[in-house]
Write a protein that binds this DNA or RNA. Sequence first.
DNA 1: ATGGTTTTTACTGCGTC
DNA 2: GACGCGGTAAAAACCAT
Length: 332
Amino acid sequence: MSHSNPGPSDSDSTRPVKSARQTPSTEETDADQTTDTCPECDGRLQVDPSHGETICAECGLVIQRDRIDHGPEWREFEDTDAGEKSRVGAPLTNRQHDQGLSTTIDWQDKDAYGKSLSSRQRQKMKRLRTWDERFRTRDSKERTLKHALGEIDRMASALSLPDTIRETASVLFRRTLDDDLLPGRSIESMATACLYTAARQAEVPRSLDELAEVSRVDKHEFSRAYRYICRELGLELEPTQPDDYIQRFTSALDFPHELETRARELLELGREHDVNVGKNPVGLAAASIYAAALYLDEDITQAEIADVTNISEVTIRKRYSDLLEADPNHPR
DNA sequence: ATGGTTTTTACTGCGTC
DNA sequence: GACGCGGTAAAAACCAT
């Protein structure tokens, strides 16, 4: 009866569980007042009843979605109740500029039975469509939002990021819009920055290079926008961990799961010997994968890893020789 | 702006298939 | 001889001050 959808985070389930990020206990207590704090920024969590979402008041991170059944309430006893109790409809979403509420006039010149309209009617529909369109994107902010959310969706799909992250990115963009951070910056760069931020907050980071490949603006533009919104919205993000890139890179290279764990061990070893402080986490991930591949006799060249990670061979060499030195029983 | 650090680019020499 | 690898110098990029 209720929407028991498996949840968008499923596409993420292949990742090894790092720690209990989700707080499943809140499901049971089910109180609207939750005293938890955001795992990202320790901000206060609040429940948005209209969306059934738990979001962080500080950074806009969506913790949990769809706790409210959006299904209908079938309780109309008298005629006067007609329509009032029925709350049928799709759930609200932040990912459409009008939160998914508006209707659109179809582009086909057909009536409800699928028959073609007379030419007179066609004229009329054309005019109506024009006004309908103007109405739906009434002012510039709505238009901006529409554009941005479309872009966020497109880029998130290209990077196969789950829905929760798109939601977070959408919330972030709304905040930048509400705080008037947009003037002077392109919508594209802001939208890209929001997505980048959202992915980092959810600990499934995509590198700046990866974002740059799907964005319509270049790296510098949106990384400037990113720093800007971090400052203005007071977001404090931890630096990304090399571990967060391991799973994606190993699977892109068709390596077995075993290699993944080996790479993580190497990173841990490196951490203990302080050889990876101040280094690019993406470079470290690439190096640990290369090193792990050597241990496990995988057939791989530095060039191939450099290719999928966008890290130069030189850097891979440097980082992985660091890692080997940290390993007391390395092969050579 | 500046200086320190990291990463990239370009190039060289060595061993192997 | 092409390829993978290790190294180096210089340029570029990045970051804090």
